[in-house]
């Protein structure tokens, strides 16, 4: 086969696409594994936890995130596209008012932020939000 520039490009793209397909489930499972470890594989409900994140983050270095889960004893945040998925765990003490917290996190690329709350009755709730991380111009 004669290798033209176009063919090399095509091969290159194919390889990347393959790597992408192979790569994604691996990343996702890191987060899934971490969540399974937390919940012991229990079913997770939805609706009693609210995760607030920007749809598009101007800079992945500082992304404002808020979580709110009335009746939660703890909330853990994960970012499924980061090299290490765990972000933070908030444990609420006896003098905590609403079971809510806000912080600023790092996202390496466009990905899902997942919040898992452990409720007072031992059940789990989860919510996720896709955050697009833009590659800045001179600002980025």
């Amino acid at each position: 086969m004669e290798l033209t520039r176009r063919k090399i490009l095509a091969i290159g793209t194919g390889t990347f696409a393959f790597a992408g397909v192979m790569g994604l489930p691996a990343f996702a499972s890191l987060t899934d594994d971490a969540i399974a470890e937390m919940t012991g594989g229990a079913e997770m409900g939805e609706g009693a936890i609210t995760l607030t994140a920007p749809e598009i983050a101007e800079n992945g270095n500082t992304v404002p995130i808020s979580v709110d889960a009335p009746g939660a004893v703890a909330i853990t945040l994960f970012a499924d596209g980061n090299p290490v998925p765990a972000v933070a765990t908030f444990k609420f003490g006896p003098l905590s008012a609403s079971r809510s917290a806000s912080t600023r996190i790092r996202l390496a690329k466009t990905q899902n932020v997942v919040a898992v709350a452990q409720m007072e009755d031992g059940s789990f709730q989860h919510a996720s939000a896709n955050v697009k991380v833009t590659i800045g111009g001179c600002g980025g």
């Binding site: 500082t62 290490v84 933070a88 444990k91 790092r106």
Partner: peptide, 10 residues
């Protein structure tokens, strides 16, 4: 509140 921080905190 008692927070565990990972390197993903800004």
């Amino acid at each position: 509140i008692d927070v565990t921080l990972e390197p993903a905190i800004s």
